[in-house]
Every structure is written in structure tokens, then in C-alpha cells.
């Protein structure tokens, strides 16, 4: 039976660990060997809304495994503009490709796509709902940085109310358990209560604060987020909080050397460029681990055993 990657909610801890192990094996494999693994296979990349990183990352992953890529990154030149249903588009693309990765502004699109075809479907973001490959690559990055996922002190900083990436990563870390979280945000962008409540029984603890400085001094990892203008119904509210948290090299003076900073990118003002050369900056390696993890996802869903 075909498998898909639609939502973190579908994945057990064992499955997540399996992806982490597979990504590690992919990373240690000689490039020559890797390039043979998906030779002759085709990835269809269906992006109904703009994305730079996710789309290029999947395409890079497929090329590095020797496969080919087709698709679109905007719908203006496709039958979608003529009113074609999503299910019809998916059934058509199924004839052209071996696996589909889809990003769409409506929630539930990836699930519907998976139900409409018999080839694997990867969700690369469905509205504000899920983006599971981002969470898997975040977990892989954490494991690469610290050698483990459990037992860390992790601060989430910025837009904790609307950030899909943060919500999903927090839920995944909750499955691993044994973490200490610090939620750093303006009052208006606090972590939703259902996510805080969801940590009950996970073996994780959390505190909430508006103070970034203490998080930098006391945590192992800071996960920064962009405050997303498009999420605010009231632009004045956005203006009040848009620059609430900004890390620069000066702010990092004196913080423990172990501190690492991740960010799903793109960044705006929340991390100054002078942080980039410091030992703390982990967000560009994070992008690289994204390609590794997406190779693991493609291999797994296409049933190529390693």
C-alpha cells in the first residue's frame, strides 16, 4: 500500500525516529551512490502558492538522488486557472510522475490529493495546517547540533500564536518528551492554550516570558520566528510587535557558547546579519539538513530501501 506524508499527527515516534535514522544514512552515503537511488523516477512539484526554500529543497533532494522533476510554481499557466478541480489535476499528474509534493493555500489539500491518487503525496504546506517535512528537518537539525533531541532547554521566540512551524515542532518534541521549553513572545502572540495543555503528560515543562535575554543565557537552543504581517487582521497590532525580538551580535556577547539559533527562514529583522558568522548561527546548516531530510522522505515513500 502506498504511503504519504501529510501530517505530523499521522506519525508515531518510531516513524519519526526512522526518518531521522534514514536521513543520517543518506548524509553519510557517497554522492555517487546516492545519485543512483532514484534514477529514472519523477517528482511532480505542485506549488499553488509561492515558496523558495521548500520547493528548491525538494527539487535539490530529487536531483541529488538522480531523479527528475516537473511541475509548476504558480497556477496562472495551468488548467487550474481554467477552473480544474484539485482531484482532476492530481489524477492527471499521477500519469506523469512517481511521487507528488504539493503546497496549497487551503487546509486539507494534501489529504485530499493523497486520497485522489495511487502514488505517494508529500504535504509541503496546506494553508495554516501542516508542513511535516519542515518539522522533520528541524528535528534532524536539533539532533545534528546536540547529538540528541531529549533533555534540551529550548526557547521558542516571536510569533508563537500563528507560527505553524513552531506548533508542529512543539508537538513533535512533545512526543519525544523530557524537554524544558521557554515560550518568549509579546502578550498578543502567546502560545495557544491547546498546545500548552497538550504538553501535559509528555514529560516536558514550559515557562512563558516576554524576556528574550534570559532565554539566550539559559537555553541550549533558540528557535526564532518571523512575525508574519499577513496573519494580522489589524495592521496597527502588527506595527506594535513587529520588531519585538531582534537578536544581534551585541546581544549574544557573554551568552554560553553552547547556544544555537535556528530559524525556518526567511528572516526579516529578527536576526541581524552580524550573527551569521558566530558559532551560534545554525539556520543555514538547517537549510542544508532540509535537503538531507527530504531525500530521506523521498526514498522512504518511494520504497527504496537503504
Amino acid at each position: 500500500m502506498k504511503r504519504d506524508l501529510i501530517s505530523l499527527n499521522d506519525l508515531s515516534l518510531e516513524t519519526i525516529q526512522g526518518y531521522l535514522e534514514l536521513a543520517a544514512r543518506v548524509e553519510s552515503m557517497p554522492a555517487e551512490e546516492r545519485r543512483r537511488l532514484l534514477a529514472g523516477r519523477i517528482l511532480a512539484v505542485l506549488f499553488y502558492e509561492p515558496s523558495t526554500r521548500t520547493r528548491l529543497s525538494f527539487e535539490s533532494a530529487m536531483f541529488r538522488l538522480g531523479g527528475n522533476v516537473l511541475g509548476f510554481s504558480e497556477t496562472g499557466s495551468t488548467s487550474v486557472a481554467k477552473g480544474e478541480s484539485l482531484a482532476d489535476t492530481i489524477r492527471t499528474v499521477e500519469q506523469y510522475a512517481d511521487i507528488i509534493v504539493i503546497r496549497h493555500p487551503k487546509e486539507g489539500t494534501a489529504r485530499l490529493s493523497a486520497a485522489s491518487c495511487s502514488i505517494p503525496v508529500i504535504n509541503a504546506g496546506d494553508g495554516t495546517n501542516q508542513h511535516p517535512s519542515q518539522t522533520l528537518l528541524d528535528l534532524y537539525t536539533i539532533r545534528k547540533l546536540f547529538g540528541r533531541i531529549q533533555g534540551l532547554r529550548i526557547a521558542f521566540v516571536g510569533d508563537l500564536k500563528y507560527s505553524r512551524t513552531v506548533h508542529s515542532l512543539l508537538q513533535a518534541l512533545g512526543k519525544f518528551g523530557n524537554a524544558t521549553f521557554r515560550f518568549v513572545s509579546p502578550e498578543s502572540l502567546r502560545m495557544p492554550s491547546y498546545l500548552r495543555d497538550g504538553l501535559a503528560g509528555s514529560g516536558c515543562t514550559f515557562t512563558e516570558t516576554v524576556d528574550l535575554g534570559s532565554a539566550l543565557a539559559e537555553c541550549d537552543l533558540v528557535y526564532m520566528t518571523r512575525i508574519q504581517k499577513e496573519r494580522f487582521p489589524d495592521i496597527l497590532e502588527y506595527e506594535k510587535v513587529k520588531n519585538a525580538y531582534c537578536i544581534d551580535a551585541r546581544l549574544l556577547r557573554g551568552v554560553p557558547e553552547r547556544l544555537r539559533i535556528m530559524h525556518p527562514l526567511p528572516r526579516v529583522n529578527e536576526i541581524a546579519p552580524d550573527v551569521d558568522p558566530t558559532v551560534h548561527a545554525a539556520y543555514f546548516p538547517q537549510v542544508g539538513y532540509g535537503v538531507t531530510m527530504r531525500q530521506a522522505i523521498l526514498l522512504d515513500l518511494l520504497g527504496v530501501k537503504q
Binding site: 484539485l86 482531484a87 493555500p105 487551503k106 487546509e107 486539507g108 489529504r111 485530499l112
Partner: peptide, 13 residues
């Protein structure tokens, strides 16, 4: 109830 859910935006779902 989610207006952005695909079941409310695609036909016959």
C-alpha cells in the same frame, strides 16, 4: 466550519 478547509473550497468533496 473552517472556510479555508478544502471541503468548502473544492467541488464534490
Amino acid at each position: 466550519r473552517n472556510p479555508n478547509c478544502v471541503t468548502n473550497t473544492e467541488r464534490h468533496v
